[in-house]
């Protein structure tokens, strides 16, 4: 292999108290491929995504992204991996624009102001850019969270239920956006209950039950 795999999960287990959220999971995802992650609530999807995003780390086993171990190389990997989480990561008292500007500045994005304005336009929040996130609907929060993710131009995008809480137009936009990411060479991991929608966007599928991979299928 000339290029290390985008994701390499080796016998990973994650425990929360007495419960195993992810149990002895092993899989790889080649660079440039998109993975669909399915499973019921509590099957370990979110935990897996959080581990891939370096938000938390395995109790046992190893995760390597682009050949780098997550625990050891977290600082470098966080630059390249972006997570669209169930929690929006937003500061409720800051406006949409201020939330994005904070991220842009912390990442050292050049011309932060212009970049933020362009992204707000892209997710259709320009008219509400000055209202605090507290006043946003669930769908609008999702859009803002996506804009936050796009500030990163990640090599790997981890999307936890990206279609949840979006209206039909929003879902179409999201689909277009995921395609755009894929075409741009970004690896995508997509966790969703909408299996058909997800399958049309991805190349591979991993089904989780009680933290284990079940019935592997392409």
């Amino acid at each position: 292999m000339s290029q290390p795999a985008a994701i390499e999960v080796v016998d990973v287990s994650k425990r929360f108290g007495p419960r195993w959220a992810v149990a002895r999971l092993t899989f790889t995802l080649a660079t440039g491929r998109a993975l669909l992650l399915t499973g019921h609530n509590g099957s370990g999807k979110t935990t897996l995504l959080r581990m891939l995003a370096t938000a938390t780390f395995p109790t046992a086993g190893h995760i390597r992204l682009f050949g780098q171990e997550t625990r050891a190389e977290r600082a470098a990997l966080r630059d390249e991996v972006a997570l669209l989480s169930h929690a929006s990561f937003l500061y409720e008292d800051l406006s949409a624009e201020q939330n994005l500007t904070l991220v842009a500045r912390l990442r050292g994005v050049p011309q932060a102001k212009a970049a933020v304005a362009a992204l707000l336009d892209k997710v259709g929040l320009t008219t509400r850019s000055d209202s605090p996130a507290r006043h946003f609907s669930a769908g609008m929060r999702k859009r803002l969270a996506i804009a936050r993710l796009l500030l990163k131009r990640p090599k790997l995008a981890l999307l936890d239920e990206p279609f949840g809480e979006l209206d039909p137009a929003g879902i179409r936009q999201m689909e277009a956006l995921i395609r755009e990411l894929k075409d741009g060479g970004t690896g995508v991991v997509l966790a969703t209950h909408l299996v058909e929608q997800g399958q049309s966007l991805t190349d591979e599928r991993l089904h989780l039950e009680n933290g284990r991979a079940v019935g592997a299928q392409a």
Partner: peptide, 14 residues
């Protein structure tokens, strides 16, 4: 804190 060794290995690859 149970140990991961307590879990049977039933790994799968996509």
């Amino acid at each position: 804190v149970a140990l991961p060794e307590a879990l049977p290995a039933v790994g799968g690859t996509p």
